[in-house]
Design a protein around this nucleic acid. Structure first.
Length: 241
DNA sequence: AAAGTTCCTACGGGCGACTG
DNA sequence: CAGTCGCCCGTAGGAACTTT
C-alpha cells in the first residue's frame, strides 16, 4: 500500500490545476512543495521518477509518452471530469509549458491557481495566477506570437484587471520573439502608469521548454517590490475556484 | 530511517552520416 | 534509394552512498 503524504496531496492538487506535466515540471514542483521554503533548485530526476511510480502504483496519476517531446507526461487520475488528457491536441505543448512555469513559481514560494473563467465575451483568461504575500500576478505563457491586433483587446483587458481586480502585475514568460511582440504592443496599448506593471521575460523556447536564457531577469522581477495598489478591489481573484 | 543524490545499465526513438 | 550504424536524449529502475 502506498503512503500518501502531505506533499503528495499538494502535488496532486497542483497537477489537477495544471492538468498535465512533464518530469521536469514534477522535479520543480516537488522542490517547491517540499519542506524548504525557497529551494535552490529542482529535485533530482530520480526523485521525480520515484514520485511518479509511487502515484502510479496508488492509481492516483496516469502516465503517457507523446511523441512530440521525448519524455513522459503525467496527469491526475482524477476520473471526475477528465479521463486521459489528449496529449496530441494542439494545446498540449502549451499546457505542459504552463505546468513548467507553475512549478517554477511553486519553487519560488508562490501559490499557483487557475485564472477564473472569462466573464464576458470580451474577457480574457490568463494561463495562471501566482500568489505570494497577499499579492497576485497574472501569468501568461506565450510560445507563439499572436497576430498583433489581438493584443489590443488582451492588453486592455489586462489593464482593466490591474486597476480593478487588484492584480499587482502581468507577467509573460515567452519565447524571445513573442516577448518582443508582447512588449511592443504593450507600449502601444497600455497607459504609461500601467505600462511598467506588465513584464515579458524571454525564458521559453518554441517547444515549450524553459531555456532560462533570461532567468535572472525573471528572478529580479519576482524580487522587485510590487507596485502599490490603489483602488483595487481586494481579493477579487480569491473567489476563483 | 527517510529523503535525496549520484552512478550505473538497459531501452527506445529521432536523426545525421555513411554505405551498398 | 533504402538500410543501418552510432550518437544523443530522456525514461526506467537497481544500487550504493550522503544528508537531514
Amino acid at each position: 500500500m502506498v503512503q500518501v503524504t502531505g506533499r503528495d496531496e499538494a502535488m496532486l492538487d497542483w497537477l489537477r490545476v495544471v492538468r498535465m506535466a512533464d518530469t521536469e515540471a514534477v522535479r520543480w514542483a516537488l522542490a517547491g512543495l517540499g519542506d524548504s521554503e525557497v529551494p535552490e533548485g529542482p529535485l533530482s530526476a530520480r526523485m521525480a521518477q520515484n514520485w511518479i511510480t509511487r502515484m502510479l502504483a496508488a492509481g492516483l496519476v496516469g502516465r503517457g509518452r507523446p511523441v512530440f517531446q521525448q519524455g513522459s507526461v503525467v496527469w491526475p487520475a482524477n476520473t471526475m471530469s477528465g479521463r486521459v488528457p489528449d496529449l496530441y491536441r494542439q494545446t498540449a505543448r502549451h499546457d505542459l509549458a504552463v505546468a513548467t512555469v507553475a512549478a517554477r513559481y511553486l519553487a519560488r514560494g508562490y501559490e499557483w491557481r487557475r485564472d477564473r473563467r472569462p466573464r464576458t465575451r470580451r474577457d480574457h483568461q490568463a494561463d495562471g495566477v501566482a500568489i505570494r504575500d497577499g499579492m497576485a500576478e497574472l501569468v501568461e505563457v506565450e510560445l507563439t506570437p499572436k497576430t498583433p491586433i489581438r493584443y489590443k483587446a488582451i492588453h486592455s483587458n489586462h489593464a482593466e484587471r490591474l486597476t480593478r481586480e487588484g492584480f499587482s502585475r502581468v507577467v509573460y514568460l515567452a519565447t524571445p520573439a513573442s516577448a518582443r511582440l508582447v512588449v511592443k504592443e504593450a507600449d502601444r496599448w497600455l497607459f504609461r502608469d500601467l505600462r511598467p506593471r506588465l513584464v515579458a521575460v524571454p525564458v521559453m523556447d518554441a517547444r515549450g521548454a524553459w531555456t532560462g536564457d533570461d532567468d535572472a531577469a525573471w528572478v529580479a522581477h519576482l524580487m522587485a517590490p510590487a507596485p502599490t495598489l490603489q483602488g483595487a478591489e481586494p481579493a477579487l481573484w480569491e473567489v476563483t475556484a
